[in-house]
């Protein structure tokens, strides 16, 4: 048993070194042989991806291809699914975040998430954005005020809400709510931001604003964007991973992948032959 563990650690260390060399120190999160099961069915099958720092990486694929599951392992929200089982490794700055010893509270402070449907908490706009900083121990009014303002500015929402921070978050429009959720996520200063189809519940103008926001956010964050919308992946991502039935079919630069896909399956998908 001990032997097995040592060998595994060694191979893992080699993997990290390999990845670091491979990515010219741009790797932020690296998946190595990630597999996820829900009960008996394998939904993510041996996926290795290197998410680059300060880039938008799109994860696309047809419904049920495992892209949301993949995203959920990156902040261990998968732990909340009762019968889910995860195998493989995920390194963030060299540390295996899938290690059961790795504290999820700390992990989630560094890896923020924005959900498919805007999910404002039943409280004011201010309290929503201040929620993260507060639970992580920030108490001073002045500090909180500053973080709330900064985050709302960062999410491109401050101008629209600055006079009604005390109003319930539910009074905002869908697109505004989603940008508020992004502000809430960046208020705890994460390094990685996971976006799970963040525009799928929004109208076109709301989507446009969120897309524009995503491209500006990569200056400070590493973004992983799950989307089933190919045009969106093409518009705003730097790298794209194409998943099909749990497997990583192709991963590369977005422009190259859409103009000149290496795999036949990718080509079929982006030309709309299935999916």
């Amino acid at each position: 048993m001990v032997e097995v563990l040592t060998t595994r650690t060694e191979s893992a260390q080699k993997a990290v070194m390999h990845l670091q060399a491979d990515s010219q120190a741009e790797s932020k999160v690296a998946l190595k042989g990630l597999s996820v099961w829900y009960g008996m069915s394998k939904v993510v099958d041996d996926v290795s991806i290197d998410f680059r720092r300060n880039r938008v990486t799109a994860v696309m694929g047809p419904s049920g291809c495992g892209k949301t599951t993949l995203l959920k392992t990156l902040n261990r929200m998968i732990d909340l699914v009762p019968d889910a089982r995860v195998e493989g490794e995920a390194y963030m700055d060299g540390q295996n975040i899938l290690d059961p010893q790795f504290d999820v509270t700390i992990l989630r402070r560094h890896v923020g998430m924005v959900f498919q449907k805007p999910n404002p908490f039943p409280m004011s706009i201010y309290d929503n954005v201040a929620f993260g900083p507060r639970i992580h121990g920030m108490k001073k009014k002045g500090e909180l005020d500053r973080v709330v303002e900064e985050s709302l500015v960062g999410a491109g929402l401050y101008g629209e809400v600055k006079d009604k921070l005390g109003k319930p978050a539910s009074s905002l429009s869908g697109g505004q709510q989603q940008r508020m959720c992004i502000a809430r996520a960046i208020a705890i200063k994460p390094e990685v931001l996971l976006l799970d189809e963040p525009t799928s519940a929004l109208d076109p103008s709301g989507s446009l604003k969120v897309e524009q926001l995503i491209t500006t956010l990569k200056e400070n964050y590493t973004l992983v964007l799950v989307t089933h919308n190919m045009q969106q992946a093409a518009r705003i991502s730097d790298n794209t991973a194409f998943l099909y039935e749990g497997r990583l079919v192709e991963y590369g630069e977005t422009g190259q992948m859409f103009e000149n896909p290496k795999e036949e399956l990718t080509e079929k998908y982006i030309t709309g032959k299935f999916g």
Binding site: N75, M77, L80, V104, T105, I106, L107, R108, R109, G112, M113, F115, K117, N119, F121, P122, F131, G132, I135, H136, C181, R184, A185, I188
Partner: peptide
């Protein structure tokens, strides 16, 4: 989704 939002912030 509301509870998940809170967990995702490290609560």
């Amino acid at each position: 989704d509301m509870k998940e939002g809170s967990f995702a912030l490290g609560a």
